[in-house]
């Protein structure tokens, strides 16, 4: 099991770093918002993996909250970007 934890941690960490690099480099606001969505999804996966490996369900409501409200940011940014360019 310890091997699984290490491999999964490395993979998720590398994915999160990739998303962070994309947030920093841009080039457009849309790139950044997509990358931060990936960061949220990676966080969901990491929290869930911890729960599955340690066999508890204490943070399941956190996952529900993230799944529900994770999209608010990207929708508002996308909407305001489109509105600004239309005019």
């Amino acid at each position: 099991m310890i091997v699984v934890v290490i491999v999964a941690g490395l993979l998720m960490g590398a994915g999160a770093i990739g998303a962070l690099v994309r947030i920093i480099r841009g080039p457009s606001a849309l790139d950044r918002i997509i990358a931060s969505d990936v960061l949220v999804a990676t966080a969901i996966c990491a929290i869930g993996a911890e729960m599955a490996i340690n066999r508890h369900t204490d943070t399941l409501p956190v996952l529900l909250g993230l799944a529900l409200f994770g999209i608010v940011g990207s929708i508002s940014v996308a909407r305001f970007l489109a509105a600004r360019d239309d005019t």
């Binding site: 993979l11 999160a16 990739g18 998303a19 990936v38």
Partner: peptide, 9 residues
């Protein structure tokens, strides 16, 4: 799941 996160990054 970890593989998916990695591939996305």
């Amino acid at each position: 799941s970890a593989l998916m996160c990695f591939a996305a990054g």
